[in-house]
Amino acid sequence: MALNNNTSSIRQRRYVGRIVTYVLLTIAGLFFAIPLLWTISSSLQTWQELRSYVPHFIPETPQWNNYVQVFTLVPFARWMVNSLTIVLINIPGTILTATLTAYAFARFNFVGKNVWFVLLLSTMMIPAIVTFIPQYLLFFNLKFIDTYIPLTLGSWLGGSAFMVFLLRQFIMTIPRELDEAAIVDGANPVRILFSIIMPLMKPALVTVAILQFLADWNDFFGPFIYINTMLKYTAAVGLRTFQTMALEITDPRDHLLMAGAAIMTIPVLALFAVAQRYFVSGVVMSGLKL
């Protein structure tokens, strides 16, 4: 009898706990969802409707033309292509050179390895702004300003420390016996990397490619400092320019800015939809045991 009472009270408590969890999840969900939904909704309204006294969640007549206007008033398509160009230059760079670096740290016991590894990790700590000024001066003297070289060179020279770290952790999970078997077969380390290790690294490399895409697509400061010509802007700098630039028509342009924000976000969400698991695997892969 007492036991019965006990289990039913546990069940009751569990039930209450479940409801509380759902309520909290819903509150958090609304906090995240409303701005997202409002982006879509307001991007399809006229500016008058956007400023009406009672907000319309469903636009009276969806203004699809807003999206057309973003592409005609400013070279938004060009800016997107520019961002994509940088991404497409950087992804192979990072995949190749971060892998080489990670391979060195994961598989070879060269002199000074620990020191280099600590130095690699410490670059994560140093704020970008410290090296930014002299890097700018370097690129300025090399006449690289207003080109994509400053925005892409780093990814061909090892990529970011975090990605190297992530790939190193991944390579270390690949059994060394595979390397050793290949050595017996007469393969050299270069061959082992390209024909044994790298094919096994596919999930890690997809993760790195996605991280690189997100970093480049989001980057504001780099292109903002290095690119001067409007036609060479990236989507991030372009959208910011659209926010502030003088245009004879279309003020206020909140509805168009929302359309621009939506356009810029769509590629990221599309990538997330097709490669969802890789977005989170980087975190899990790195193991986070620094």
Partner: peptide, 13 residues
């Protein structure tokens, strides 16, 4: 999902 929205877009929003 909000963490996927580029910073420029989220600030404008």
């Amino acid at each position: 999902m909000p963490s996927l929205v580029p910073i420029v877009a989220s600030i404008i929003l």
